Simulated assay, not measured.
Amino acid sequence: MHGQNGRRTAELKVLSGVRELGLPFLVISYRNDEGAPRSPDGLIHLGADEWRDLEASVRATQGMGARRFVL
């Protein structure tokens, strides 16, 4: 997960270490991120709405067999 004004590409820096541990990973985009759909009002809500994007990603990976998560 990235914070306010973060970019998904910033998370890519740690993925080589995650891969070396043999862990799968998922890097997601949140509403209003570069290249992602805008929220209806186009504003960042500091997690008040963005948590839904994370939840949807977790649920999608659960559907693919994931059972435990590290955020």
Rank of each mutant, 00 (worst) to 15 (best):
Q4S: 10
G3C: 10
G6M: 01
H2D: 09
L26I: 04
R59E: 14
L23V: 13
L23E: 03
M1F: 06
A10I: 04
A10K: 11
V70T: 14
M1L: 06
R59C: 08
S16Q: 14
M1W: 00
L71W: 04
S29P: 01
V14N: 13
E50I: 05
V14S: 13
R59W: 01
L26N: 03
D49V: 12
L54D: 01
T61P: 03
A48P: 00
Q62C: 13
G3M: 10
H2N: 03
P24L: 02
L23Q: 08
F69M: 12
R38A: 10
N32M: 01
D41Y: 00
R31Y: 02
S39C: 08
L12K: 08
S29Q: 08
A60E: 14
E34Y: 10
F25G: 08
G6N: 02
E11T: 08
E11V: 14
G65A: 09
V18C: 14
F69W: 13
A48T: 03
L26A: 09
R8H: 09
M64P: 02
R59D: 11
Q62P: 03
I44L: 12
R52V: 08
V70L: 15
G6K: 02
Q62V: 15
D33A: 08
R68E: 10
A60M: 05
E20Q: 15
P24I: 00
Y30F: 13
V18I: 15
R67V: 06
L21I: 03
G6V: 06
L71K: 00
L23W: 15
L23D: 00
D53N: 05
A36T: 13
D53C: 00
A36R: 02
S16D: 15
G22P: 09
H45Y: 15
F69D: 11
P40Y: 00
S29Y: 00
P37L: 10
I28T: 05
F69C: 11
R8W: 10
G47H: 09
L12F: 03
L12Y: 06
V58S: 05
S16G: 15
P24W: 00
V58A: 07
F25A: 14
E55K: 03
L23F: 15
G6F: 04
T9K: 11
A10S: 12
L43R: 15
Y30K: 05
S39A: 14
G35V: 03
L26M: 10
Q4E: 10
R59N: 09
V70S: 15
E11R: 06
A36M: 10
H2P: 05
M64F: 10
